[in-house]
Design a protein around this nucleic acid. Structure first.
Lengths: 335, 335
DNA sequence: TTGTAAGCGTTATCAA
DNA sequence: TTGATAACGCTTACAA
């Protein structure tokens, strides 16, 4: 049924070896011969068999992307950055979703990787996640996004800094009772929240402000979670006057809770997030913008480069800049 | 370096054929033999070479998903439904983003599909998109999501119905000057918007209401587009008292425009969307909810089934139900 | 139930 | 610069 390299070789009156070389752009092929082969291949509508090529060469031309979520804004946006790079590089993108600590039943990713891809991109698994380490243990070229592990290439933002400037912004507005909505209790934390919390601590400490453990709540990086967390904070005997939410989506949920309590963001309580989510402008949310698509793009570029130069490049930990955008959800302390 | 089927066969004292059969769960293998082989394979940490298996069998065990966007809510949510099914089915998911009429520079998808995947899932390309037809022309098992083409299996909602109930809801509230925010001018339309517009027409016609062409604007299914479209509607000499936006994201943008003009959704102007977007509850948007994840899930299941039973199943056009959710963005006509 | 052996369509080594 | 040819690691008739 299918045209093979043999058919092209016969039609061109050369060997399959020459066709292979010509079509892959290898050197040491006569220019005229190459052109003729290319024309004939096109005429015959020849398409190379990836399976055969992979078997013979040992390279798969594929990269797996491992992510805990697909439909959430951060992950989808990272993924779109990755995809554009891999498409330009002519590599196949295998998408694999994995369970998170809270998550549903799913296959562990590591066994599905072996002999199947040349490299792996992992998006924001918690640094202590066993699945992450099973993947790393495979020893294949890997690049991390939104997590950092020593000795492994990664692309992240400076989460400590992000947490610090978000908090500092609230402090600058005169707030002293500052609450924080993080993701989860400490043992299940992402790198990001761990570091953002440290930034929070640093800013608070730097201003000589006490951190009230009663003013921390968990929002699990979801809208609904953010709503619950904010509700918990608001029903304290003495609620915060400002809240730092570690993601915009949790901040959105927090806004919902505030509305239910008749409180206005930026007036009654100030609220700042991190992300620069598509909807943050619409909801007038102050936030620390991170270049999410670039996280994916740059990690993918680094991985492709490493695969091409099949030498172990030094494991670089790249950090991208962030920027505070002040909107209406934060304002001076009113009481 | 790698353990091959030969190593397992030698260790088990059987032929590679038997190992192949045993490990794939084929019948006609002695139960004890199979168990022994499985144990030995596990002990040796044997992993099958997909390339070799694919080359020998002619099946790739992969399905491509072609989508115009990855990071937008609808597409990401569909994709997550698809992914969960393919993962359970043990198939690889190749993700390919394609350009849309407005879009960026990208490779056409069809050439990247041949010999590479067993089947294709296409998410919501406009029915007249040449890229869609190039894919269909390949003649491989295909299932469409959010588009319908005669003779091709598809999973959609009843968009006419969705448009009708959204519009009827506004009519029931007493509105007569009803605007509509669609995606794009008629020649670049998705199936969805075409049909939703028909539903709009039917409802208007059924109520004896005139459709004012001045009250239609294009929002390109984005937040920013929705904002511009609503701005255009509001700056009419005689603006609508209610607006039907064909997607929630455009409705969000419309809300932003209303806010800029000091207008309150549901009070000054009623606004209804379609989607059931994550953020619709938060923004108190009335909307026609569609089961987006199920769209992906069901299409993927149908495709997997077709591949397994490698017979041409009758091309089914599946339609999933929708439901109007009334929230605060729609209210009785006030003037 | 198991084994033999001929593919599957490339790539890569070595020679010419 | 080109050609022969041996892998690559599995699947699948066909035979036993």
């Amino acid at each position: 049924m299918g045209i093979t390299i043999k058919d092209v070789a016969d039609a061109a009156g050369v060997s399959t070896a020459t066709v292979s070389r010509a079509l892959r752009g290898l050197p040491n092929v006569d220019a005229a011969t190459r052109e003729r082969i290319q024309r004939i291949a096109a005429d015959l509508d020849y398409v190379i068999s990836p399976s055969a090529s992979r078997l013979a060469s040992g390279r798969t031309g594929s990269i797996a992307v491992i992510t805990p979520y697909i439909a959430r804004w951060f992950f989808g946006t990272v993924l779109s950055g990755v995809e554009s790079v891999l498409q330009s590089a002519g590599m196949d993108l295998l998408l694999m979703s994995v369970s998170t600590p809270e998550g549903q039943h799913r296959l562990p990713p590591a066994p599905r990787l072996r002999r199947r891809v040349d490299g792996v991109l992992v998006i924001a698994l918690p640094p202590q996640d066993p699945q992450l380490h099973e993947v790393l243990a495979l020893g294949m070229p890997t690049s991390l996004i939104g997590v950092a592990v020593p000795e492994v290439p990664s692309v992240t933002i400076d989460d400590v800094h992000a947490g610090r400037i978000a908090t500092q912004h609230l402090i600058n507005l005169g707030h002293e009772r500052i609450g924080v909505i993080s993701g989860a209790p400490i043992d299940a934390r992402y790198t990001a929240e761990h570091d953002r919390y440290r930034g929070f601590e640093e800013a608070m400490g730097g201003a000589g402000l006490a951190i009230d453990p009663m003013l921390e709540a968990y929002g699990y990086f979801t809208i609904a979670g953010g709503e619950q967390a904010m509700t918990a904070l608001l029903t304290q005997q003495s609620p915060p006057t400002a809240v730092f939410a570690m993601s915009d989506e949790m901040a959105f949920g927090a806004m919902k809770a505030m509305r239910s309590h008749g409180l206005r963001p930026g007036v009654d309580i100030s609220l700042v997030g991190i992300d620069g989510h598509d909807m943050s402008e619409l909801l007038d949310l102050s936030t620390v913008v991170q270049p999410v698509q670039d996280l994916g793009r740059i990690a993918a570029e680094a991985l492709v480069l490493q695969l091409r130069s099949n030498a172990d490049v030094a494991a670089e930990a790249i950090r991208l800049p962030t920027q505070l955008i002040v909107r209406g959800s934060t304002g001076p302390r009113s009481r």
